[in-house]
Design a protein around this nucleic acid. Structure first.
Lengths: 119, 119
DNA sequence: CACAAATGCAACTAGATGGTTGCGTATAAG
DNA sequence: CTTATACGCAACCATCTAGTTGCATTTGTG
């Protein structure tokens, strides 16, 4: 099968990364992602220590990040280690680059139109 | 004055761009930003046409984007034109690049440690 | 002036979100 | 075995969010 060779299921990449932005749109979750990036895999209690909120709240935030595909977890003994998963964040970064690039292009078009049609 | 020459007021850039991500974390708002980037300045009714929701809902979404510094508005006659404001989005993109870069660095360290200390 | 178009403002509702507390369960350690 | 640690699950609550409807206000047009 496989009637189309590529880009068969990506008509609107905006839909894909809106949940990723929503997951990043919280200061605590952004701090968690940054901590996992720089500190490697960490357990829930490690991530909770240093914050002002409870362990269960951190667990919920990790669940949101996991649902967005930004983190993964592995069970090690009685602990549950969480680690960063860069794929979705890369996708989101590319989306922002794409938007910025389109804006530059439109600005160039606008400048050209104004210079060649000043009336 | 100015005891440090640079980076005096940016101890935690995470706090700055979390609201930007929150504003981008909605499919409709992401579509609005993309439309304003590629279509230039547009009025509320222009942005409303083609969607399934009401004009007031679009107005609220534009208010959220404006509060995050992602769009600006100018009054022209009886219309209110909205245009893209790239500063905050660039900041958010740089934040994602920073996080990804730190992750790469950590992964490199991990790889180095595993190769040189396999036990 | 009369009218239509574009927008603003306020009240209201259903559902999502972020947080808590309490208790139960699995696993490592003494 | 007993205990402490790390975590899961569920109920509960306050607030925010996204959307609606209804009506008032500004502005261009005939």
């Amino acid at each position: 099968m496989s009637p189309r060779r590529r880009a068969a299921a990506k008509p609107k990449p905006l839909q894909n990364c809106a949940p990723v932005f929503a997951a990043l749109g919280d200061e605590i979750r952004l701090t968690l992602v940054a901590a996992l990036c720089m500190g490697g895999a960490m357990s829930i209690t490690q991530l909770t220590s240093g914050t002002e909120i409870s362990r269960q709240a951190i667990t919920k935030h990790l669940g949101v990040l996991s649902a967005a595909g930004l983190v993964r977890d592995v069970k090690v003994g009685r602990e549950r280690l969480w680690e960063f998963e860069p794929v979705q964040l890369d996708e989101a970064r590319r989306m922002l680059e794409l938007i910025g690039r389109h804006w530059d292009h439109d600005l160039a078009k606008l400048k050209f139109a104004m210079e060649n049609n000043p009336s």
